Amino acid sequence: MGLQEDFEEHAEKAKTLPESTTNEDKLVLYGLYKQATVGDVNTPKPGVFNMRDRAKWCAWEAVKGKSKEEAMSDYITKVKQLLEEAAAAGTS
């Protein structure tokens, strides 16, 4: 399986992450996903009163400069990690 297919598969798996997934982890995934699919952040930073969109923008900005392939690989690794943590938490 190629990197693109693996990435798409893990993007689908990310939708099954539990509600308990932290916002920080969700923002990391968001930033990596946007970097992998769009590239460097290309929109103005949202205003201070738009906290949700501003946090998402900052997460994307944090991975600025990563190649598409590197962002895909990091995204896959993060989804695997979160799924493993969720499985471990479910068995305890």
Rank of each mutant, 00 (worst) to 15 (best):
V41W: 01
G2T: 12
T21M: 15
V28S: 12
P44E: 11
P44K: 08
A62K: 11
R54M: 04
V79R: 00
Q35A: 15
E85G: 01
W60D: 12
N42V: 13
H10W: 10
M72L: 08
D53Q: 10
N42Y: 10
M51S: 15
G39L: 07
G2I: 09
L32A: 01
M72W: 02
Y30V: 03
T37H: 07
A88R: 14
F49A: 11
E61F: 05
V41Q: 04
G2P: 08
M1V: 03
W60G: 03
Q35E: 15
K80E: 07
A71W: 02
P18Y: 07
N42C: 13
E5D: 10
E84Q: 06
V63L: 07
D53F: 06
N23P: 02
V41C: 06
E69D: 11
G47I: 06
K66I: 12
T22F: 14
Y75V: 02
A62V: 14
M72I: 05
D40K: 03
Q81G: 09
P18W: 07
T91I: 08
S92E: 03
E70W: 02
L83S: 08
T43D: 12
K26E: 01
E61R: 03
E9N: 15
T16G: 12
A89K: 14
T21Y: 15
G65K: 11
G47T: 05
N50E: 06
